[in-house]
Design a binder for these strands. Structure first.
Lengths: 188, 188, 188, 188
DNA sequence: CATGAATGAGGATTCATTCAT
DNA sequence: CATGAATGAATCCTCATTCAT
């Protein structure tokens, strides 16, 4: 049903503007559907939010992935990936607002995708990365810097760029000893 | 009046547990005071939250500062500072939840203190830091890693430690070129 | 929607009984609707009160107007108008309680209507009225006597009738000199 | 105790400014006494209001009485009395706000005084008054015009003066037939 | 006797969710 | 299947009154 799409689209917009505290009615209004229809598709407000979160997340991750494809070398791919991901981060308030949730939800398709992409980038740049750096490290770094983006975007749009350079430099093989491998796997 | 303290204490607890969305009555109940008393001391819910935030923030920052004092050398001081600050971060949900606010409020006493401490640590370790690293960079790094702490503390308590090492290595003078100085000052 | 009417009706009742200080829930209860419904129609308590006020006012003014229609001569029309208006006054507590507000709100449709009616009556009885009597005078007299009605209705239902006769006699052309015209117009 | 006086004085001020809806604490604050003291003297807010009301009323009535004393003739005495009473009316918000209450409380000393004064004036001007005009009529007229004062004082300070002239003219012996005597006495 | 902190029942308003049409 | 009016619990805040100090 195309109503479902309209709802998700409107919700994406509204959530980006006002965060998860919005009135559901506002979403219904912008979707052009009634409350009943909205609740038919998403029995709980949170269901809708989750759906938006997933879609938003996927789009964001995908755009970052594409940025890495055209890079000249593996290191540039990694760099471009981070640049693109972080640049887009600020626009995705729901992601930010819910990343704790997202992060700890191992079933979330989006995060699985993202992990795959990063894993690939990591494997490609393995020679340049210091030993012991895991996919999980790279993923957490992304989220961590994402937070910096959030905080600074209003005032100093490019401050986070400096952090990114620092971190990337810290990741290079010629900078620092190998990292111990202990905490690299995510088990539940 | 010790009621004021009781309220702040209870609020600190409750806010840590449930976030800023709690019912004011819950705080009153746990404080053992009536609504009126609570509102006598804090005319708006936000006043109370801000107070908790400040106190929480101060305590946290102070404990980090103390950790840096006993260090053997300037670099260890910086390292210990980060370790301690991040270790305590997870316990301070209000700080986290409101750091955006905290961050952008230049009048907040707490953040001014924190900046001073970091500035001192930076100055002390200047020879070891790559050129161009600013106090603001170090501050943002702290918050950024703080977010990582938040996300991982539930499941993988020490994952953020790896990020910290990476970042610190990226900050060393022998790793990487000088950072450009452009965005180093916070102006309004 | 007939709920709107039910709400206004219940509110009219309740406001007449208890004044504007009533709990909104009481109105909701008597209307047989939930709080939400009430607030859907009247976002602020005052909106509801204003609505009741207007309706009450209109009905009252209209009944007075009709009373003047059947009169034998212009003077009787004026007299009957006052009689009817004042007789109905006591039943309209909201009007009374809010007349200051009503009075000073030049946009209020009701008062505009009332003024028109009085103007017509005045014009019709012009030969019998002492020179200089304005519509505004007649309007203020009405409200003024209305207050007397309020005060006496509980105990001496017809005392105000005496005042009315006195005032009307004072208005006759053969009683007293012309009134100075100065304050006859309402300007902003 | 002079505290009692201070409280009443402060209350008079505050009530005149803000009406009976004020916070009791505001009165305590301005009195310079604590809540406990205030409540020792006036166990209920209404007790305080009543006390203020009485005093305010007495003063107002007394000033009107004095205005009548110096008059040249009985009719002027009556006229001056009304003029003065009405002129002072607007300043006595509590009186106004509570006149219904005042009016219906036959034990209120103030109103007894006022009635005595009016009775005297009426007796003095008896030959000039149309037959049947009672003290009660004159009293009600006063209150009724008082309301007009209230309503117009903000915008048209002297509109009520015109009503006063009209009414007084209506009261003269040569204007109109005797009024029937029926409702002249206040019985309970 | 005085103080003013403490109490807590209300009161206005919002919003996720349901359900008659 | 869609609509959007209806629901009412939940929430913040006020203020008359009490009572420990």
């Amino acid at each position: 049903m195309r109503n479902q799409e309209a709802i998700v689209e409107a919700a994406t917009e509204v959530l980006a503007e006002q965060g998860t505290a919005v009135d559901v009615r506002e979403i219904a209004r912008r979707s052009g559907v009634g409350m009943g229809t909205l609740y038919r598709h998403f029995p709980k407000k949170e269901d809708l939010i989750r759906t938006v979160l997933r879609q938003d997340f996927s789009r964001w991750a995908e755009s970052a992935r594409r940025a890495a494809i055209g890079a000249e070398d593996p290191w540039a791919a990694l760099t471009d990936f981070y640049e693109q991901a972080l640049t887009g981060y600020a626009r995705h308030r729901v992601i930010v607002e819910n990343f704790a949730l997202t992060w700890s939800d191992p079933d979330l398709e989006g995060i699985r995708q993202l992990r795959l992409v990063i894993e690939e980038l990591r494997a490609g740049a393995e020679d340049l990365l210091r030993a012991g750096v895991t996919t999980e490290d790279l993923l957490l770094l992304l989220v961590s810097l994402g937070h910096a983006v959030q905080l600074t975007d209003g005032g100093h749009p490019l401050m986070w760029n400096r952090l990114l350079r620092i971190s990337l430099d810290g990741l290079r093989a010629d900078h620092g000893e190998p990292l111990p491998g202990a905490h690299s796997s995510r088990s539940k």
